[in-house]
């Protein structure tokens, strides 16, 4: 019994709209008051149709002048499935003496169902328009009060500034890098002498003692600007006094190197190699200023 009742009720609910071509129709308009001469009034019409029914766009009002005081500036139709959204943008040109009620004219939207054509009425819409001037208008020295000319705009230079900044931002690092390649920053290369030496040492072991010694000799030479020998260490300290703090290690290094290269039967020990590395690390610390 209950099921029967529900069925009857649902049938009753459907029966009213099943033969209507439009399932949803709404006209959305903004506030109906407070407009002035020259204002734009948007109006949105939303139509949802039953399957097989299409909107006939030719039946919409044409862009341009509707009547003496009303223009239709823009008309856009968006379709998503069976839902049509029609956006109209009117503009009013009317100079009332007091608050005046005006009406956007209604029109009929045509919908096609096969051969048949169905009309859907869009009702007229009333709104009020207010004047901008008082009834007895004030007078300026020149007579009628008018708003002044709009001053000509100054040319915008943001685009050019962006261009200048961007191209300089690109040019500066390239120029710096080229300068580095061309040896324009001798101080900078001198500050990475032991950094590079350390990197080379990392790939060596105690069996490559000859190479390791050469690397450190080379680093010291390039720091000194000329080959550095044990006898000229005092000169070196005068020019680079910060290396005095590892004086003992440097002396050991030169002695060790002498023995390695010029005496026979020298056996390399892992400890010596570690000491070499330590020396290089100390030098690196001095070089970057952390000691």
């Amino acid at each position: 019994m209950r099921i029967l009742l529900i069925m009857v009720l649902s049938l009753l609910g459907c029966s009213g709209s099943i033969d209507q071509p439009v399932s949803y129709f709404n006209v959305e308009t903004p506030r109906p008051f407070g407009y002035v001469n020259g204002d734009e009034i948007p109006q949105r019409i939303v139509i949802e149709t039953r399957p097989g029914i299409t909107l006939q766009t030719g039946s919409l009002p044409a862009k341009g002048s509707i009547n003496r005081w009303l223009n239709l500036n823009q008309i856009t139709v968006k379709q998503s499935g069976r839902r049509y959204q029609i956006d109209l943008l009117y503009q009013v040109f009317y100079a009332p003496l007091e608050v005046k009620s005006l009406t956007l004219p209604g029109f009929t939207v045509q919908l096609n169902q096969g051969e048949k054509s169905i009309g859907q009425n869009v009702p007229a819409w009333s709104f009020t328009l207010s004047p901008l001037r008082e009834l007895v208008a004030r007078q300026s020295e020149q007579g009628e009060y008018l708003r002044p000319d709009s001053p000509p705009p100054l040319l915008a230079n943001t685009q050019a500034w962006y261009g200048l900044t961007a191209s300089l931002a690109i040019a500066a690092p390239i120029a710096t890098y080229l300068g580095y390649l061309y040896g324009c920053f001798p101080n900078m290369t001198r500050r990475t002498v032991f950094k590079r030496a350390l990197r080379k040492l990392a790939g060596l072991s105690k069996t490559d003692m000859e190479q390791a010694l050469t690397v450190i000799h080379h680093a010291l030479n390039s720091l000194n600007g000329q080959p550095l020998f044990a006898s000229r260490l005092s000169d070196f300290y005068r020019r680079n006094p910060q290396y005095l703090q590892i004086k003992a290690q440097l002396v050991w290094f030169f002695n060790y190197s002498n023995r390695y290269f010029f005496s026979d039967g020298m056996i390399t020990v892992a400890q010596d190699f570690q000491q070499l590395k330590n020396l290089c690390e100390q030098c690196r610390k001095i070089e970057r200023g952390s000691r």
Partner: peptide
């Protein structure tokens, strides 16, 4: 009218159009 069609937020044009419309009512 053309100015307002291009830029409907131009209040000076609205005002002066009203002056012109009062001068020569439509």
């Amino acid at each position: 009218r053309q100015a307002l069609a291009l830029d409907s937020g131009n209040w000076d044009a609205k005002y002066n159009l009203e002056v012109a419309m009062r001068l020569l009512p439509e």
